[in-house]
């Protein structure tokens, strides 16, 4: 039987996550421009972080298995990989819901969405490989090697690839303090990509202290296009008018202008810039801690079940 301390810890986790849910819905304020939809960040970000943690744990136990050849290490590696896969699916689903509200579409092959999809495929490959092999030693050995190689891709697919691509609508600059979207520099007549929107700078015009740009914005697939007129206040050296992208809650802003060279820097202004509210940050932290504890619990149960399954198979083999 589980020790009393473990049971109390699990009960506390249940209460903790209930508190996180309550805080998510009724304590933290709404995000400016996003309304109640912005609250999903309290689920989305921690599940994504926990998936990275889980894949890291899986790779660690895979390395330990290759070193020590203990079946328990392989059970732990597999359990962590399965939990990581589950949390990645949760992060993807919550992200897709957010995407539907903010971008108007569940899935638009944004670099962030594509990279997480590739990550899911890689770990699905691990499970398929293990399922295809009958020899337990071979299954464990190859699974451990695959898991190590799979983890090498995790930092690239989760942290590097989406930041290398300028054409992402994933709101790094909106929610993560310290990160920023650089935007794109365009001169008159030039075309660029801002988010998944094609933008073309038609002309620049100075009217008093303001510089106004005429920008054609095209939807993906060139379904429709609109002309927007973001402006820049020269006296305050700050963006002035920031019209919304058609059908989105993101705005286009003129971040900087060089009139002599005829070049402007256009960028996305996401609603609810920075989760600066203390309650939101504390809830996000509490959610991350809660999901981490939940992962540890789930992973322990699954590893135990895999161990029991292995013991039963051993005994069945001995009896036959």
């Amino acid at each position: 039987m589980a020790s009393t301390r473990t049971r109390v810890a699990h009960l506390l986790l249940g209460l903790w996550m209930s508190g996180v849910l309550a805080a998510m819905f009724v304590v933290i304020p709404q995000y400016e421009g996003l309304g109640n939809t912005g609250r999903i960040i309290i689920m989305h970000v921690p599940t994504a972080w926990v998936s990275v943690l889980a894949f890291g744990v899986s790779a660690t136990f895979s390395a330990l298995y290759l070193w020590r050849k203990k079946p328990e290490d392989d059970d732990r590696a597999l359990a962590a990989a399965e939990c990581g896969f589950l949390f990645t699916v949760l992060a993807t689903v919550t992200g897709a819901i957010f995407s539907q509200v903010v971008w108007g579409i569940y899935w638009n092959w944004d670099p962030r969405q594509t990279s997480i999809f590739v990550l899911l495929l890689i770990y699905a490959g691990l499970f398929a490989l293990r399922a295809a092999l009958d020899n337990p030693d071979q299954k464990r050995q190859l699974g451990a090697v695959f898991s190590l190689f799979a983890f090498v891709t995790v930092p690239f697919l989760i942290f590097i690839a989406p930041r290398m691509a300028e054409s992402t609508l994933h709101p790094n600059c909106a929610f993560l303090p310290g990160s920023k979207c650089d935007g794109i520099e365009l001169s008159e007549g030039r075309i660029g990509l801002l988010g998944d929107r094609k933008v073309q700078l038609l002309m620049l015009e100075q009217q008093g202290d303001q510089v106004i740009a005429q920008v054609i914005v095209s939807e993906p697939g060139l379904v429709s296009e609109a002309t927007l007129a973001p402006s820049f206040d020269l006296t305050q050296a700050a963006p002035a008018a920031m019209p919304e992208f058609p059908g989105l809650r993101y705005r286009i802003k003129m971040q900087d202008v060089d009139l002599t060279a005829g070049v402007v820097r256009l960028n996305i202004e996401a609603p609810g810039t920075e989760a600066s509210d203390l309650r939101t940050r504390l809830t996000l932290l509490a959610s991350t801690l809660g999901f981490t504890a939940l992962f540890i619990w789930m992973y322990q149960i699954r590893a135990r079940l895999l161990g029991v399954q292995w013991q039963l198979e051993q005994r069945q083999g001995a009896w036959q």
């Binding site: 039987m1 589980a2 699990h10 249940g14 996550m17 209930s18 849910l21 309550a22 998510m24 819905f25 009724v26 619990w297 789930m298 322990q300 149960i301 135990r304 079940l305 161990g307 029991v308």
Partner: peptide, 26 residues
């Protein structure tokens, strides 16, 4: 909020039961 709490209660009860059963089996 009520729906989310109900889902969490279900997940928690399932994990609690699975935990107890797997320990007993072991």
């Amino acid at each position: 909020l009520i729906v989310a709490l109900a889902v969490w209660a279900g997940v928690f009860a399932y994990l609690w039961r699975l935990d107890a059963q797997s320990r007993e089996l072991q």
